[in-house]
Structures are given as structure tokens and as C-alpha cells.
Amino acid sequence: MALDIATVRRVAALCRIRVSDTDLSTMEAELNEILHWVEQLTELDTDDVLPMTRVVDVDLPMRDDVVSDGDCADKILVNAPASAQGFFSVPKVIE
């Protein structure tokens, strides 16, 4: 399953990373090299194997569905690049 330039472009768009036209072919080659290398996994028959969902055999803990934290908008906003009136602010999204 080799990646082509169009796929690299699509993946970059999906993860919101800009890849310049000049870097596209380098990225294509690098990603293909890595993907080719991981494809050795196809040598293994895993039809009857369950995928791992947790690495240690313990049940996830349950707790009461109650608020345990909050009232700290100032703390949450303290690192925001831009905020206003207790909210994060972003460039205009609706024309």
C-alpha cells in the first residue's frame, strides 16, 4: 500500500499540518519507507487474535457521576493565546 502525493496531501489536511509543495515528495518517500517497514506485520496470521484493548488485566474503576472539579475558568484560560469575557476566542468562523 504505497502512498502517493495526493494521499500525503489528504493526510496533511486531515491533521492540519501544512506540507509545502517542495516537501511533499520528501514526505512521501519518508512515509512510504516507514509504511513499507511496518508492513512486515502482514506475515503474521492474526485472524483469530483479539486486538489488545487494555494492557493490564484490571477493570476500569467506576465513580459517582458527580462534578468533582470546576469553578476555575481563570485557571483554564490563563494559558489561552486569546480570550474574552471568560471564553476562548478564535478567528471568525461564521460569515
Partner: peptide
């Protein structure tokens, strides 16, 4: 948006991409 670097852009999408 919430913390870390922000590089301003023409739109939200542009801002996301430039930042990342």
C-alpha cells in the same frame, strides 16, 4: 486555541495549520 503557540491566520483553519 486553549494553550500553547498560536500563529494567526486568515481563518480558523488557516490558524490551525500555521500553528501546528
Amino acid at each position: 486555541v486553549r494553550y500553547g503557540l498560536r500563529v494567526e491566520g486568515d481563518s480558523v483553519q488557516d490558524m490551525y495549520e500555521k500553528t501546528r
